[in-house]
Design a protein around this nucleic acid. Structure first.
Length: 441
DNA sequence: GCATGATCATGC
DNA sequence: GCATGATCATGC
């Protein structure tokens, strides 16, 4: 009599069957049709696992194992230099239907149903081999929402939903939230298909719910068994738990903070000193908390002059003259940065030197992101023509382009082969001054 | 005082 | 070796 490989209605059976993949590749575990074997990096590994390993229908829009109430996820890992694993990218849960979302409650919402119980299979991402040769590492993880995580996820979900109810689906940003993100998904550029939204006539970019990379990393760390959660208590949230770390130092001058933390400026010209000091206030020395390490949150330190204007503009990574020519605004690094959640650490200058005055979360408003996008487009256009008349600080309320290099000999090649000092995007200091001025707490 | 150019110590 | 977050320097 034909024996099923596993019981599709039993979580235990599914999990135990999935263990067959651990330490192996899909190709080693099942016999694949030739057309699949020949795929060169094409096709989605998750779909191949569903079809050829679990033998379930990958086109099912609902959860993967409805009888078991279980969702299946297959996701890539990278290996850190210390040997541990980190997530390659965010974990996408499903497209956001703006119309359906505003009618939902969290407890019965599409995304909660999907993520409350998930089987996550991890493979070590290797760009040089075929999909079916990606090796599965770590044991399969049966993910169940914890109480603390659920409170955070629910809050994020409510923030996203509230924005759609306010007719601002087109203004959604990954920086709006902490664990559950509304990430861009679907074709960009000319193929992009905008979506309608219920409370506005403005079309919005298609987005999906996802576990942010940082949250997925927290899950992975727990699975590997070595991670102390950011907060244990249920009665305060992630945001507050970060701000609490700074609280003992608010109002103190930098000398006192330095002394408290036994971390002193070395050398006369340590430009990263306030940044390093801020990291240490977070309670970490070299390594940041996963949320920062994995770039879900962009920490920036700002020094204000006595007039309340930052002493300096705010810098971002260097511009890659080659890469930018093949990118659209939305897949650019600068876009990804300005969509993030920022943690802004402000030092005021007074008679006593520098004092830690404010620490707050911020994300860039939609209108301003559009302005930043315009600066990026102008920069790309200049680079394409091998010109160096980059957008100046005066030309935009929000951002400009300026050198950022080791010295003026540190150059990069333009399309015509000529060399020019490496450049970066900067947020204007007057703009940052407004951000700080508008902060109320 | 401001715009813009130039550069630093650090960590990976 | 190099990008990074950030600061220093110069000239108008």
């Amino acid at each position: 009599m034909f024996q099923e490989k596993y019981d599709k209605s039993s979580v235990d059976s599914i999990v135990s069957y999935s263990n067959l993949l651990t330490g192996k590749t899909l190709d080693e575990v099942v016999t694949l049709p030739g057309k699949v074997e020949n795929l060169k990096n094409k096709g989605d590994l998750g779909r191949l696992i569903e079809t050829h390993f679990f033998e379930i229908d990958p086109s099912n829009q609902q959860i993967d194992f409805p009888e078991a109430g279980l969702e299946l996820k297959v996701t890539g890992l990278l290996r850190r230099t210390d040997g541990s694993f980190s997530a390659k990218e965010r974990l996408v849960l499903g497209m956001i239907n703006f119309h359906a979302l505003i009618e939902e409650d969290w407890e019965t919402s599409y995304v909660y149903i999907k993520c409350q119980l998930m089987l996550i299979l991890f493979y070590l991402y290797n760009k040089d081999v075929r999909r079916i040769d990606q090796k599965f590492v770590l044991a399969p993880l049966l993910y169940q929402i914890t109480e603390w995580d659920e409170a955070e996820l629910k809050r994020d979900w409510q923030i996203i939903r509230a924005k759609v109810i306010a007719g601002k689906a087109h203004e959604l940003s990954e920086g709006d939230t902490f664990l559950l993100g509304a990430c861009r998904k679907g074709a960009g550029g000319e193929k992009e298909a905008l979506r309608s939204q219920p409370k506005s006539n403005v079309l919005a970019k298609s987005r999906a719910f996802s576990f942010k990379t940082s949250y997925l990393n927290r899950i992975i760390q727990r699975h590997q068994g070595g991670y102390a959660p950011v907060a244990n208590a249920v009665d305060y949230n992630f945001e507050d738990s970060i701000l609490l770390k700074f609280k003992p130092f608010l109002g103190k001058n930098v000398r006192a903070i330095s002394s408290d933390l036994n971390f002193h400026k070395s050398g006369k010209n340590h430009k990263g000193f306030l940044s390093d000091l801020s990291r240490r206030m977070l309670g970490t020395s070299k390594k940041l908390l996963p949320e920062f390490q994995d770039n879900a949150i962009e920490m920036k330190t700002v020094r204000l002059e006595a007039n309340g204007i930052p002493r300096e503009h705010m810098s971002f990574p260097q511009i890659d003259f080659d890469e930018i020519r093949n990118q659209t605004w939305e897949d650019s690094e600068f876009f990804e940065k300005v969509e993030r959640k920022f943690l802004i650490v402000v030092f005021d200058r007074d008679d006593d030197g520098l004092t830690l005055s404010k620490v707050f979360f911020w994300n860039m408003p939609y209108e301003d992101r559009l302005v930043a996008g315009g600066v990026w487009e102008a920069t790309k256009a200049a680079i394409e023509r091998s010109q160096t008349n980059f957008p100046r600080a005066k030309a935009s309320r929000v951002a400009h382009v300026r050198p950022k290099a080791r010295n003026k000999q540190d150059t990069a090649a333009l399309p015509d082969g000529s060399h020019f000092p490496k450049q970066a995007f900067w947020l204007n200091r007057e703009y940052i001054a407004d951000v700080i001025r508008n902060y109320r707490r």
